[in-house]
Amino acid sequence: MTVKNKKVLAYKCKKCGNLQLATTIFCNKCSSQDLETVEVEGKGKIITYTIQNIAPEEYEKFKPYAWVVVKLDIGFNISGFLPGINSPKNLPINARVKIVDYDERGIILSLD
């Protein structure tokens, strides 16, 4: 689980302060094992993305959509599913997005 109530579950390293997704077990900066769970805001900006014209089989029914990489305001990146996007014209790099849901399509985002 990475998302709860539109917040991202993160680990904060008690040794170096690094924040990372709670799915990585040791600190990915200093390798410390001393981490605490925190919830961070699911808001940030798009650093890159693609629009899947040909999607994996199970995702054909969800088109159009973009798969996006987002730099959260808190500092680390997540990636997820942004429905309804059919052209790069509708999605500039650096566009603001927020997490709105988490379901079988992964982390669901919307333009903020």
Binding site: I47, T48, Y49, T50, Q52, I54, A55, P56, Y59, F62, Y65, W67, V68, V69, S79, G80, F81, P88, I93, R105, G106, I107
Partner: peptide
């Protein structure tokens, strides 16, 4: 999350 293999490289290309 719906990314195909070309999709992942497409995201690198966009960047």
């Amino acid at each position: 999350s719906g990314a195909s293999f070309p999709g992942l490289f497409a995201s690198m290309a966009r960047a």
